[in-house]
């Protein structure tokens, strides 16, 4: 391939690029570390059995080659001007960060008065709200309207009319309304999700042979459904395609992703654990 004659400055760029390539060719990749990690965990289980299971041979870490320095004269002007602009940008960002930090400190400051009957009393000094502190002190808003929407517009968590759980579901007793999450479809078909359940969400897909199979969309670890710090025996539950479609429909209605919708249902249930979560179906 023709290498051509570069214009002034291009030689320096070429040299710099070469330097980058040499660096990347001598540096171990992070991806490799991931697989090394798996190997280590395998070995801890059964060192003999897993010895040499990786089809990728152990990599020899190449010796660092001495990279040639780019010709300073050619690139000095370009680099110094770039550095200057980067420094300016950094300075301005640092100033902004400092301002934010000051505001945050102000917002979070409180005084402790221990003089009163040896009891500790916290006096929270409410900072003067400025435009800046308002933004910083409330960066996250909790959208509770979704709950209202769920209750008013579409029943997501439904107390089914028919309390006999279909045998197709991984549940053989009447739902426990104190502890179970009921996700219903028109009050007839429904699934029961218990807290601390390993939930596998499946839906139907067609295959080229014309048959319908179940496809795993998402798996939720039982622990993530429990309250923080609590551990319970895990149970397994499959979230069936008909209920998938129900939540999917609701997710689309509210403009949420499916998993977000389901997580919302589970999270709100775990937080509130109140009967009103079971929106009566009218």
């Amino acid at each position: 391939m023709a290498r051509g004659n570069f214009k002034t400055g291009m030689s320096a760029m070429l040299e710099n690029s070469r330097k980058g390539i040499i660096e990347s060719s001598t540096k171990d990749t992070s991806e490799r570390e991931v697989y090394k990690g798996y190997n280590v965990s395998n070995k801890s289980n059964d060192s003999e059995q897993n010895k040499g299971t990786s089809p990728i041979k152990e990599r020899k870490i190449p010796e660092k080659t001495t990279s040639t320095k780019p010709e300073e004269s050619a690139s000095k002007t370009l680099i110094s001007s770039s550095l200057e602009s980067i420094n300016k940008e950094l300075d301005s960002k640092m100033d902004k960060l400092k301002e934010k930090q000051d505001s945050l400190e102000k917002a979070l400051s409180f005084t402790v008065d221990t003089t009163k009957d040896n009891k500790t009393e916290k006096k929270v000094s409410i900072p003067e709200i400025t435009k800046e502190t308002e933004i910083i002190s409330s960066p996250i808003t909790i959208d509770t309207s979704i709950i209202d929407k769920i209750e008013n517009k579409e029943p997501i968590v439904t107390k089914p009319e028919n309390q006999n759980v279909p045998s197709t579901y991984n549940k053989s007793k009447t739902p426990d309304y104190e502890h179970d999450i009921i996700v219903g479809t028109n009050g007839k078909n429904y699934a029961v999700i218990e807290p601390y359940t390993n939930l596998t969400i499946v839906r139907d897909v067609k295959t080229s042979t014309g048959t319908t199979k179940e496809k795993v969309i998402h798996e939720i670890d039982g622990i993530t459904m429990g309250r923080k710090g609590e551990s319970q025996p895990k149970k397994n539950c499959t979230f069936r395609p008909e209920c998938y479609d129900y939540v999917d429909k609701a997710a689309k209605f509210y403009g949420k992703k499916f998993n977000t919708m389901l997580d919302l249902i589970i999270r709100e249930y775990m937080l509130n654990h109140e009967p009103q979560w079971y929106t009566p179906e009218n």
Binding site: T200, V202, V205, K206, T207, S208, T211, K213, K215, V216
Partner: peptide
């Protein structure tokens, strides 16, 4: 709504379908 590469490559054993499907 159709079986994809995921269904034959990554799905858990119980749900995995044949690649030709």
């Amino acid at each position: 709504g159709e079986a994809t590469l995921y269904d034959c490559l990554l799905a858990p054993d119980k749900y995995r379908v044949d690649i030709e499907e």
